[in-house]
Structure formats: structure tokens, C-alpha cells
Computed example of a mutant assay.
Amino acid sequence: MALVTFISDFGDQDHYVPAVKAKMLAINPQLNIIDLSHHIKSFDLEQAAFILKASFRDFPKGTVHLVAVNTTGEMTQGYIGAKLEEHIFIAPNNGILSLLADKEPGILVKFADIHVQESSFPAKDILAPIAAKVASGAAIHDFGGPLDQFKKAMPRNPKATREFITGHVIRVDRYGNAITNISKELFDKLNPGNFTIEIGRERLDRLHNGFGQVDLGDCFAYFNSLGLLEIAINHGDAGSLLGLRFESVVTIYFNP
């Protein structure tokens, strides 16, 4: 199955998304193109990487992922293809791929000049044709040569000691739930049994498994399906009510 996912910061009010899809479908009308999101904040690599990281492994191995976020400008150093965990990524070389996993890509290719024409719309003119052809059976090696290193962005990692973990909100979803970068793996490794989660003026001293365990309007914390600490209010907007936004600090104190 020729499957391509597509994520961008184009929005849905202009011609950009349909133009990119049309370019791919003109090459292979049988392509199955899945939209991940086109509502990424303009140029926001971290938001795009979060959505892509949270979803790409759920697609079949061999899926091609077209990444069209901040495709022009000084941050972008050419265009690349990468094979990571049996998935293929076609993207600008702007650091976004470094935010998807701790491991290095198994294959990394810089697209050759013959495939990288001057364009004010590289998602359509450069990335879309390569993505469509790779999804149709071509190899990423067909479009360029090996690349030793790709541009890397600095991930936001929590700080941890035996006394505390300090992390940040990395996403407030449409329900107002605040997703942090504190993983269950790290928490389980350090937790002595008693703890206090501090979010602004709110204090929580227990974890729940989900919304069904708390009353309407209750604030609570749980580890979500991604294994990340999430702060929510049942049928409420934790982001607005607790003043949480991207980069808000969340600290877990461990009590002896």
C-alpha cells in the first residue's frame, strides 16, 4: 500500500495543502495520503515533532512521512530523506527529525541538486515528488547521496535528582489538558512512594489512571498513552484554569 502521511504549518485556508497533495497524486493517483495536522503554529518545529513522534509508530512500517514545517529560511539546510525505525521521512534539514527519537536514523540521504530546484514552495516542488515516488517504490538513495550528520535541535529534557523532577508543559491540547515532558519511566525510577506534584498553585499527591476515576471539575494527574505526565480537569480546561501553557514548569517533589 502506497501510504504517505502529511504534516505542515500551512493551515487550511489557502491553496498550499491541496497543491502539495495534487502534486503527489499526479505522480501516483493510487496514493493514500493521511493528514496528520496542518494546524501547526507557523515554523513551530517542537509542536510538529510532538505530533509526529506521538503518531508515526502507529502507522505500518514503510510508511512515508512528508514533513512540511518551516521549509524555507535560514534554519533549513537543504532537504533530506531518512529511514528511522523502518519509517521513511522526507523533510527539510532544519532539526525536526532530531526531535523524533533518541537513536540516529539508519539511513540518511541529502537530496541532490538535480532534485532540489529553486522554489518558493519547496513542499510542492521538491518534497512532494520525492515522497510520492518513494511511496511508490523508489529508494531514497535514488535522490541523493549519504549524509553523515543532519541538523539537530536541542530537545527539552526534564531535570531530575533524588529529591525532585522538574519538567515543562510541551503541549496543551484542544481540551485544555497539559502534557508534560516527564515520562513514567523516569518517575518510576525515582519515586520512593510519596510525592507531591506542583503546578503553579495547585498541589497533587496522587496519580489516577484516567478521567473515569475523578469527579467532574476535579484536577488530577495521570500518565497518558504516550507515557507522559498529563495534568487535566475532568470536563474542564486545565490550561486556562491553571494558567498552563507551553513551557510552564511542572515539578514533582519526592517525600522521604
Rank of each mutant, 00 (worst) to 15 (best):
G167M: 03
Y79R: 03
T251S: 13
G62R: 11
Q30F: 10
I197F: 03
I140L: 14
H15M: 06
E46P: 03
M24I: 04
I40A: 08
H168M: 05
F195I: 04
E86K: 11
I179Y: 00
F111K: 06
Y79C: 07
L147S: 08
L229Y: 00
L204D: 07
E118A: 08
L97S: 06
R171L: 01
Q213M: 13
V116C: 14
A232S: 15
K23Q: 15
L186E: 10
I130F: 09
P18D: 13
G239P: 09
D218T: 09
V116F: 10
R156D: 02
V4T: 13
H208C: 14
L226Q: 14
K133V: 08
V20Y: 11
P192G: 14
A238V: 00
N70K: 09
F121G: 14
I231M: 07
N209V: 02
Y222C: 01
I252V: 15
H235R: 13
D142F: 06
H208R: 07
C219F: 06
L25R: 14
F50E: 07
K159C: 03
G62T: 10
A91K: 06
L226V: 02
I90Y: 12
N191L: 12
Q149G: 04
Y175V: 00
L36P: 08
A153S: 15
H168K: 15
V67N: 07
R245G: 02
A2E: 04
V20P: 09
Y222L: 06
L228Q: 11
E46I: 04
F223Q: 01
A139K: 12
L36K: 05
P256F: 02
R245V: 00
A238W: 00
F6L: 09
F56V: 01
D113L: 05
L25S: 12
L36E: 05
D173Y: 04
T196S: 12
K103Q: 14
G239I: 06
L228W: 02
R174D: 08
